[in-house]
Write a protein that binds this DNA or RNA. Structure first.
Lengths: 214, 214
DNA sequence: GTTTTTGCACTGACCAGTCAGTTCAAATTC
DNA sequence: GAATTTGAACTGACTGGTCAGTGCAAAAAC
């Protein structure tokens, strides 16, 4: 058991120290490797090599391989949550409806996945696992993101825009799933298509315009 | 290089030999362990122990750990595809519309995930990875399943039931994602809810009845 | 002069895959 | 029908390699 005192004392978030730059390089190296191969199949030596640092540096900056991964997860989902919230808020500010807000969040989700496909991949791969040390981190972080969608749905029901009958958590999950899977398939199997294209298809589905909306 | 003559001569499919029973036990042991921990983190010793056989038996029945996993994938997705196709065919036979067919397939998907949650979990975790030996197996098998959904969409467009504007592969992905993520969240976070409940929520979403269908 | 990084040798646990040997039910022989 | 043989199925101790994590002295960065 290594002693590693206070990870967060000096420059917890967004610091511009040298250390922060090294950590960023390590995140970037780890994210692609773990997305490709999975956590267990990725070695610390590989991560260090891809980041262009010595192995010792990894352990100078993170207590362990798992801790590196956990902080990576927190970091990534933090970005996503901020982006979703920003999309919802912007729509509200501009006086859009709640469907507009959902639509804006779909786009924000697509933009995120477009920019960080490896992170998304890795996140999906770990999300429903059990018995892993970082499970609780993952749950917390998931809830933060899903809560944004649920909030918009709740507001929509209260404002009379959505049916009272809808099941908020389940509908939120389903919407997230729709975007997630469509986007991952897009990136994996038809990477040449434009974001607007994908967004248009998902919008149509959201608004029930597939089956003519009888 | 071990010599392994004709795997399939005597009782290739559904045979009731002792060997077949052992393989089944190994599949069942492997699927839960790999779903929980991932492929690399799961040891062959663990699989053997949970299946109640000796390690050597694993290697008597499968050329390697990866081969065991690949055959497990093929086996599982085979079941899913058959079930989806059955749902689509049944609806057609009974004179249902294409929306009815999609709805029946959503239910078939939920039933499958309800029965084999571990398999689903493991499948999702591996699907978008790259650089793994079983990647091609996974792609083939994925396409079989998605093709069933695409087929129904295509028929629906031809028959005038769906808009000509829809993007078939993307919409199919999105529908699959909707069911997949909603169902995994259901199993992981609100396992007490009934299948009918979940199905109702997804039906509503499919038919655009969320936003009142203006 | 303090913080951070490097390079590298080392350890101990763990694990995929191997192989010589065992088991036992069915086939063969007498 | 009792004795013997066969071989597919199974066993588990063993091996060779891999990898997370350590330790530390010296260099570099600030």
């Amino acid at each position: 058991m290594t002693i590693r005192t206070m990870e967060s004392s000096s420059a917890a978030s967004g610091g511009s120290t040298r250390r922060e730059a090294t950590r960023q390089k390590l995140y970037e190296a780890a994210v692609t490797l773990i997305a490709e191969q999975g956590f267990s199949a990725t070695t610390v030596d590989e991560i260090a090599e891809r980041a262009g640092v010595a192995k010792g540096t990894v352990y100078y900056n993170f207590a362990s391989k798992s801790v590196l991964f956990e902080e990576l997860l927190r970091h990534g989902v933090g970005l996503l949550t901020a982006s979703l919230r920003e999309a919802a808020d912007r729509t509200a500010r501009e006086g859009g409806s709640k469907v507009d807000a959902l639509d804006a969040m779909i786009r924000a989700g697509l933009v995120f996945i477009d920019r960080y496909p490896a992170f998304t991949q890795l996140y999906v791969a770990e999300l429903w696992r059990t018995n892993r040390t970082w499970q609780s981190t993952l749950m917390v972080v998931r809830q933060q993101a899903v809560a944004v969608v649920e909030g918009v749905l709740r507001d929509g029901v209260e404002g009379g825009e959505f049916s009272e009958e809808i099941d908020i958590p389940l509908t939120a999950s389903a919407l997230v799933g729709m975007v997630l899977v469509a986007a991952l398939d897009w990136k994996s199997f038809q990477a040449e298509r434009s974001l607007d294209d994908v967004h248009a298809a998902l919008s149509r589905l959201l608004q029930g315009r597939v089956s003519g909306c009888r």
